[in-house]
Amino acid sequence: MIKTVDLHKSFKIAGQAEPLHVLKGVSEHIKKGEVVSIIGPSGGGKSTFLRCLNMLEIPESGQIFFEGVEITDKKIDINLHRQKMGMVFQHFNVFPHLSVKENITLAPVLTKKKSQAEADEIAMALLERVGLQDKAEEHPGRLSGGQKQRLAIVRALAMEPDVMLFDEPTSALDPEMVGEVLDVIKGLVKSGMTSVIVTHEMGFAKEVSDRVLFMDGGVIAESGTPSDVFNTPQNPRTKEFLSKVLY
């Protein structure tokens, strides 16, 4: 479903002559229906890799294929492809000036996927699924972090995406709200949604993933089933990382 070939990305840092080389050749293939978690130390390139998948970060070299189309090609209309890739951010990024329901219906209506009436109906069904139906007319300012993130998830789902990208979805949450968000993601994953999840929740990654990628130093240092990576890591850096984190 998503295939990347030798992705490279570096960032210029103000006041530094040498750009920071964040991705150093990442090639990966995410299959339809697969749930892939990406773990690893901060600065290892996890988020940058994820953000490249829907071209929020534009890689300097390498290719990305989504459903057979090369989306790194400058001639394609990236907006059409992004409509099929939902994304959930660490800081929720819900739209504060719109009501909870409008947050969900805006994109389907603007991209002409749905009429306003259809979108409203879908929005209410989605809100019910995550227990926010009572908040439909409120503004997100009144929601807790966990509620905001659940809203952000259903906002992405309203576009009926083929794949969901999660960028540390629970890292900015109070500890007691992590569970409610993880439950929503678990439900989604069980329904067969292809997902790529950047996370620091090792227990969660171990439980829901079909495959775990360990990223460090801008490359995928290790890849395998959760039991392979967590129980019998091969790469010394994976071993070292896992020995330091609790799960």
Binding site: N79, N93, L106, A107, L110, M159
Partner: peptide, 22 residues
Amino acid sequence: DRGQTEAARSLGLSRRQTMSRI
């Protein structure tokens, strides 16, 4: 916040729609 633009673009909205609606 730049995250607002990113969220809107990730939903498939164009630059123009993101600017005018978000």
